[in-house]
Computed example of a mutant assay.
Amino acid sequence: MPMIGWIFILVAVALVLGSLFMLRDSASKMYIPEDKLEKIRKRKAELEAQEKADDD
Score class of each variant (00 low, 15 high):
Trp6Asn: 12
Lys29Gln: 08
Lys52Tyr: 11
Ile32Ala: 01
Asp55Val: 00
Asp54Phe: 10
Lys36Gln: 15
Asp54Ala: 14
Glu38Ile: 15
Ala53Met: 06
Ile7Tyr: 07
Pro33Tyr: 01
Ala27Pro: 00
Gly5Met: 10
Phe21Arg: 08
Lys36Phe: 11
Leu23Val: 06
Lys39Phe: 08
Leu37Asp: 04
Leu20Ser: 02
Glu38Thr: 13
Ile9Thr: 14
Lys42Asp: 10
Phe8Gln: 14
Gln50Leu: 13
Met30Glu: 09
Gly5Ala: 07
Ser28Arg: 13
Lys39Gln: 12
Leu10Trp: 11
Ala49Ser: 11
Leu47Gln: 11
Val11Gln: 05
Leu17His: 01
Ile32Trp: 01
Glu51Phe: 07
Phe21Gly: 00
Arg41Asn: 07
Ala53Phe: 03
Ile7Arg: 09
Pro2Ser: 15
Glu46Ser: 02
Lys52Asn: 13
Gly5Pro: 10
Leu10Phe: 13
Ala53Gly: 05
Asp56Pro: 08
Ile9Ser: 09
Met1Ile: 13
Gly5Thr: 13
Lys42Gln: 15
Arg24Tyr: 06
Ser19Phe: 03
Met30Ser: 06
Ala49Trp: 00
Leu10Cys: 09
Lys29His: 11
Ile32Glu: 02
Val11Trp: 06
Val13Tyr: 04
Leu23Phe: 13
Ala45Ile: 00
Ser26Leu: 03
Ala49Phe: 00
Ala12Phe: 12
Leu47Glu: 10
Leu37Arg: 15
Lys52Ser: 12
Ala45Val: 03
Phe8Thr: 08
Gly18Gln: 03
Leu20Arg: 04
Arg41His: 05
Glu51Ala: 11
Leu23Gly: 09
Glu51Asn: 12
Lys29Ala: 08
Leu37Pro: 03
Asp54Ile: 09
Val13Leu: 14
Ile7Lys: 09
Ala27Trp: 12
Ile7Val: 15
Ala27His: 06
Ala14Thr: 09
Ala27Asn: 05
Gly18Val: 02
Leu37Val: 03
Ile40Leu: 13
Leu37Gln: 14
Gly18Arg: 01
Val13Gln: 01
Glu48Pro: 03
Ile9Ala: 15
Ala14Met: 05
Ile40Glu: 11
Phe8His: 06
Gly5Val: 15
Met3His: 15
Ala53Gln: 11
Val11Asp: 04
Tyr31Arg: 10
Ser26Cys: 00
Val16Phe: 05
Asp54Pro: 01
Leu17Val: 14
Ala49Cys: 04
Leu47Ile: 14
Lys44Met: 12
Leu47Ala: 08
Met22Thr: 02
Val13Phe: 08
Met1Pro: 15
Ala14Asp: 02
Asp54Lys: 14
Gly18Trp: 02
Glu34Tyr: 06
Glu48Leu: 08
Leu17Gln: 01
Ala45Met: 10
Ala45Gly: 05
Asp54Gln: 15
Glu51Gln: 10
Val13Pro: 01
Lys44Trp: 07
Leu10Asn: 00
Asp54His: 09
Val11Cys: 10
Ile7Asn: 03
Leu20Gln: 03
Met30Ala: 00
Ser28Ala: 13
Tyr31Val: 13
Ile9Gln: 08
Ala49Gln: 10
Asp56Cys: 03
Ala12Ile: 07
Pro2Lys: 15
Leu37Tyr: 04
Ser28Tyr: 09
Tyr31Ile: 12
Ser26Pro: 02
Ile40Ser: 04
Lys52Ala: 15
Lys29Asn: 11
Ser26Gly: 00
Asp25Trp: 08
Arg43His: 10
Arg24Met: 07
Ala49Thr: 04
Lys36His: 08
Asp35Glu: 11
Val16Asp: 01
Met3Ser: 14
Ala49Tyr: 03
